[in-house]
């Protein structure tokens, strides 16, 4: 089923490859064409594989229960936490937005009681803020906390 999705994706892919236009003989479209052909060919090969009943097995991992079915609520909660970060990071700054992300993600994955991930998240977010802006000279928005001297 996933392979079907991939096959469709590759075909759409290949059709968009016509988009770039140029006058050169070996212009910007040559390499995309090659990649497109490669993708179409492999998707066909995968269809053949699938037709022969050789589907793919999900990757195993030490924290992965291979017998479990997809846990959509958890995934959605995780997506929500991430969306919160995207929305909040500019108005409220990294320390607060990252706290929300960490707490939300840990809570969705089963951390209880709720205040513990919030606390750990806040420590992590503020530490990284100080580390990045003060020691590494990389920019992170501090948001309303900008006036606190060591965060900006």
């Amino acid at each position: 089923m996933g392979l079907l999705a991939l096959g469709v994706f590759t075909l759409v892919d290949a059709s968009t490859i016509v988009a770039p236009s140029s006058v050169n003989t070996v212009g910007p479209q040559a390499f995309p064409y090659a990649v497109g052909v490669l993708l179409v060919l492999t998707s066909l090969a995968l269809f053949v594989d699938l037709a022969r009943g050789r589907g793919g097995a999900a990757e195993e991992g030490e924290d992965v229960d291979p017998t479990a079915t997809t846990d959509w609520p958890t995934v959605l909660k995780l997506t929500g936490s991430f969306a919160a970060l995207v929305v909040l990071v500019e108005p409220l700054g990294w320390p607060i937005a990252a706290t929300v992300l960490f707490a939300g993600a840990a809570w969705s994955l089963g951390a209880r009681p709720w205040w513990r991930p919030v606390l750990i998240g806040a420590v992590l977010a503020f530490t990284t803020q100080v580390l990045f802006t003060q020691l590494l000279d990389l920019y992170l928005p501090a948001g309303p906390l900008e006036r606190v001297s060591f965060l900006g």
Binding site: L85, L101, F102
Partner: peptide, 22 residues
Amino acid sequence: PRPYLYAGILTFAALGSYSVGA
């Protein structure tokens, strides 16, 4: 505990990509 581990991974992932171009 795994919830904290993966929440931490997500946070650092966001941090890494955000600090590339803000």
